[in-house]
Design a protein around this nucleic acid. Structure first.
Lengths: 341, 341
DNA sequence: CTGAAAGCGCTTACAG
DNA sequence: CTGAAAGCGCTTACAG
């Protein structure tokens, strides 16, 4: 690969001038620009990104940090990533998928991250990834609340998980449901913690006793129970425990499909015998399911877009007023999976 | 951030020795190692990845190159990426999502890619991304066949698209279907080209006349028709053209859901009135749909894993015998969406 | 508008 | 096993 010296020599100018032509940081006369570009073309020259990064101290990449060993892209992440990639590309940024192995988190990783900032997906209660980013002084934005004791200035982009649970429960309670079963996210995630609190609050406000069968947590990806989340709980609670349940709130679309399968196997049907509400899923798929699924529009793509913007702001690339904590609104999209009692 | 000189000074050794302790490229005495590690801890030192890359000429990142402007992560890519990330991390590699804007492809990008190799998703017939990678001498693997005239030594990982279409058609023809409608991928993609050829071949072998309504292509993402692909074609062909169709082959699960919606709106049902076959989708979701969808298991996660392995082989990191073109097997997973005529 | 020179923070022969 | 020095390929004050 040709380097800047080769181009400078061929064009009869200095390295600094070649640099200017490509970086556009200082004006260059048209004549010189042409000479440089022609020489570059001839030599098939492209500036070395790494060498540039070393001196500018910018990698022009942001990390999308996903937890190792307990993570799986689902339809929510799908939309989210589409938003992230699109918005990042507006600022000339690329996206580095960063799956930090748990062991490496313990013994700080072998080399600094080649990223200018990071977006942390699915934070857990005391998330080591966040401590590591904090330690390495890498600006970051978390998708969801964090509780790390020593991290004060974290920026977050989140849905209003409390309001979401209140909205869902109100919607169901208005339809006469009081026997609800909540299939929450994995219990380590802060989103699950927020939702649980909200769920309990709603139950209390409506004088509904919280019973053990009413709330469940998604098993770890490594667990053999992972793939049957939704099915197993539905069968267990309805058929074995014989508890009365009239409405099920499912964490995501996959879980909802799993629940529907269980309901069918029990000889029951949605929404006649049970109402089903999906918190996060692919709306166009949910809309086309039979029956179409009622769920929340979390605007996951917008979450991605705004997390990039907030990060760009922290990197000093985007001006304007940005709150430390940004909330993306959400609303109920009605399908045919919930009925009045 | 502390740098290598700081650590060397504090530990009372040379920079080269500090370097060795972290890179492990030469043995270091235990005593010196301890001194260096302690100094590093004290200074919170981590080697600078960029500076290292500049001299080693390795970025320890592979690019996942996705076409800009006409791309959307779907459930297939989901699984695929999960495979890629997992396998790449085995070799200490990170994954850079690279969405090359179309304009940038024209005027070769501003700086070289900070990647050691690339995996090209969804190649089109004369794919500019591939010419660019070739020009920049970056090793790459394509997911799907490519036809670039000047690129000879390309490695590909692919499903056997010809066999897949033959298998699907045989399956349907055995059930008595001769009036099939094929909702193919976007016509620019090589996968769509291979499938079309195979489809026509099968029809010819069974003395079925190819008619215009029998094959459709997914609209570009930028098209307003994109979101209704499947629905629109089904309604148009069945209701407006009033063509006889007994089986529909859908490119992916989203398209299949869309088709089911149309069928329902036409007052028909699956599989009684129409059989439905999905080429690529999330099997666990398809299994849980009502009716459960019959489809192909393309092993998309394996596609991801093997594309990384093949790339690692090209990078000289993985030994062994690797074919230039690797085929991942696929098989039919039966659900309840196809019936005999 | 352009050039000469220092420097970004590492690794790597070379020498001992 | 360790050190001194050159060099990776750029950018950036500084000077003109």
């Amino acid at each position: 690969m040709a380097k800047i010296d080769d181009v400078a020599r061929l064009a009869g100018v200095s390295k600094g001038t070649v640099s200017n032509v490509f970086s556009q940081k200082r004006p260059t006369s048209e004549k010189v620009t042409d000479k440089v570009l022609e020489a570059s073309r001839e030599l098939n020259y492209v500036p070395n990104h790494i060498a540039r990064s070393l001196v500018t101290k910018k990698t022009m990449a942001i990390g999308l940090t996903i937890p190792h060993g307990n993570f799986f892209f689902n339809t929510f992440h799908n939309q989210f990533i589409n938003g992230v990639i699109l918005e990042a590309s507006h600022y000339g940024y690329r996206v580095l998928l960063d799956m930090v192995p748990v062991e490496k988190v313990k013994t700080p990783s072998l080399a600094s991250y080649p990223i200018d900032g990071a977006i942390v997906l699915g934070p857990t209660e005391e998330d080591e990834r966040i401590n590591l980013l904090h330690l390495n002084q890498i600006p970051f934005v978390t998708i969801g609340k964090i509780f790390n004791a020593n991290v004060k200035d974290a920026s977050t982009v989140n849905n209003d998980n409390f309001q979401i649970i209140r909205d869902i429960c109100s919607y169901l309670i208005d339809k006469g449901h009081r026997s609800m079963m909540f299939l929450n996210a994995n219990e380590l995630m802060t989103v699950a913690i927020e939702r649980r609190e909200a769920f309990i609050e709603v139950l209390t406000n409506h004088q509904i006793d919280l019973q053990e069968h009413m709330i469940h947590y998604k098993p770890a990806l490594t667990s053999s129970k992972y793939m049957n989340y939704g099915y197993d709980e539905t069968v267990h609670v309805l058929s074995e425990l014989k508890e009365r349940v009239t409405a099920i709130i499912a964490d995501d679309d996959r879980t909802a499909f799993s629940v529907m399968n269980a309901i069918k196997d029990l000889g029951l049907s949605v929404p006649e015998d049970l109402s089903l509400f999906v918190i996060c899923g692919d709306l166009s798929m949910m809309h086309k399911a039979t029956p179409s699924l009622t769920g929340m529009d979390l605007q996951s793509s917008e979450l991605g877009v705004h997390s990039v913007r907030l990060l760009m702001h922290k990197l000093g690339i985007l001006d304007g007023d940005f709150p430390e904590h940004m909330i993306i609104s959400s609303k109920i999209i009605e399908g045919d999976s919930c009925s009045s009692l």
